[in-house]
C-alpha cells in the first residue's frame, strides 16, 4: 500500500519534471538569455514574498471551483457548470455591492452569500434537468455556461456599467466591499482562509456526515442506493446546489478580493481549472480537501510565470 503510494508520487513528480523540461526546450532555443529566463521560470515564483503571494492568489479561486467539481462528481454527475456559477457569483456579488445599498459592516459577506446563492443556479439547472428529464448534465451544463456568461454580461452592461470607464467595466467597488489583505507586501486576501475552510468543510461533509454518506453511495452505485431506498434525485440535486454555491462563492470572493471593478468580459476559466485541480487532487478517492491547496498552488507555479512573460 505505502510502497504503491510512494511509487505513484514519484511517478507524478517525474512526469512533472518531464513536462517542465519539454516546455523549457523551445523557450531556451528562442531567447537571447536562456539561463536567466530558465532561472526566472523555475525559481522566480519562489524568489520573494510577492511572487509567493501570486501563487496563493492564483490558487484561491481554484480551491472553490475544485471543491465544487469534486462534490458534484462524487454523486456521479459530470456537471461542468462550475464555470458559469463562478462567473455569475462574481456578477451578482457586484450587483449586491453596487445596487442594494447594503450597510458597510455587512456589505462584503452579504455580497458573497448573495452572489453564491444566485450563481449556484449555474450548477443547479443542469442537475435538475438531469434528475427530472434525464438530459445529459454534461451537455446542458456546457451550453448553459454560455447562457450564464451572456446573462451576466447583460446585467453588467445594463445595470452595473460605469459609462465613464471607457470599457465594459462596472463602477468602482467601495472599500467596504473588499476583502482585507492578510499578508503585507502581497495581494493575498481573506478569501484564501475561507477557501481552506470550505475545502475542509467539504471533506467533513462527504466523509463524516450522513448526507455525505448518502451522496457517496449514490455516486458509487445508484443501484445500491435504490436498494437502500435512498432518495437519489434529491441527494444528487442537493449536492449540485452545494457545488454551485461553492463555485459561485469563489467567483464573488475573487472579485471582492482581487479587483477594483468587475471586469470579466468572458468566462474566466476558473471552473475548467477547478476540474483539473479536482482530478489532480485525487477526486476519486482519498482526502481530497487536504490536497487541494498545495496542488492548486502547484498549478499556479507551472502556469503563472508563463502568463507573466
Amino acid at each position: 500500500m505505502i510502497r504503491t503510494a510512494v511509487l505513484a508520487t514519484l511517478l507524478t513528480l517525474a512526469l512533472l519534471l518531464a513536462v517542465v523540461a519539454v516546455v523549457l526546450v523551445p523557450i531556451v532555443l528562442v531567447l537571447p538569455d536562456p539561463r536567466g529566463a530558465v532561472g526566472m521560470f523555475l525559481f522566480g515564483p519562489l524568489a520573494d514574498l510577492r511572487h509567493l503571494g501570486n501563487i496563493v492568489e492564483a490558487a484561491t479561486p481554484l480551491m472553490f471551483t475544485g471543491l465544487a467539481v469534486a462534490l458534484m462528481f462524487r454523486v456521479g454527475m459530470f456537471n461542468l457548470g462550475a464555470e458559469g456559477s463562478f462567473f455569475l457569483g462574481g456578477v451578482f456579488a457586484t450587483f449586491a455591492i453596487l445596487r442594494l445599498h447594503l450597510p458597510d459592516p455587512i456589505m462584503a459577506p452579504v455580497a458573497i452569500l448573495l452572489g453564491a446563492a444566485v450563481g449556484s443556479l449555474g450548477c443547479v439547472v443542469p442537475g435538475v434537468l438531469r434528475a427530472r428529464f434525464g438530459a445529459s448534465e454534461l451537455v446542458s451544463s456546457l451550453m448553459l455556461n454560455y447562457a450564464a456568461l451572456f446573462a451576466g454580461l447583460y446585467v453588467v452592461n445594463y445595470m452595473l456599467r460605469d459609462p465613464n470607464a471607457g470599457a465594459m467595466l462596472s463602477y468602482r467597488l467601495p472599500a467596504a466591499a473588499k476583502l482585507p489583505r492578510i499578508l503585507p507586501g502581497t495581494r493575498v486576501h481573506l478569501g484564501v482562509l475561507v477557501g481552506l475552510a470550505a475545502c475542509a468543510l467539504g471533506g467533513v461533509y462527504l466523509f463524516a456526515t450522513r448526507w455525505g454518506y448518502e451522496a457517496r453511495v449514490v455516486g458509487a452505485n445508484p443501484g445500491f442506493a435504490r436498494h437502500l431506498g435512498l432518495p437519489i434525485t434529491a441527494v444528487a440535486a442537493t449536492v449540485q446546489a452545494l457545488g454551485g454555491f461553492a463555485a459561485a462563492a469563489g467567483g464573488a470572493i475573487e472579485v471582492q478580493g482581487m479587483y477594483l471593478r468587475f471586469s470579466w468580459q468572458a468566462l474566466p476559466g476558473a471552473g475548467w481549472n477547478g476540474l483539473v485541480v479536482a482530478i489532480l487532487a485525487g477526486l476519486y478517492g482519498g482526502d481530497f480537501a487536504m490536497d487541494r491547496a498545495p496542488l492548486g498552488g502547484l498549478r499556479a507555479v507551472v502556469t503563472l510565470p508563463a502568463a507573466d512573460a
Partner: peptide
C-alpha cells in the same frame, strides 16, 4: 451483489 447489494468502490465499512 455488485449491482444492487453493495458498491464495489466503497469500503467494507461504508
Amino acid at each position: 451483489r455488485f449491482a444492487q447489494g453493495g458498491a464495489r468502490t466503497l469500503s467494507v465499512a461504508d
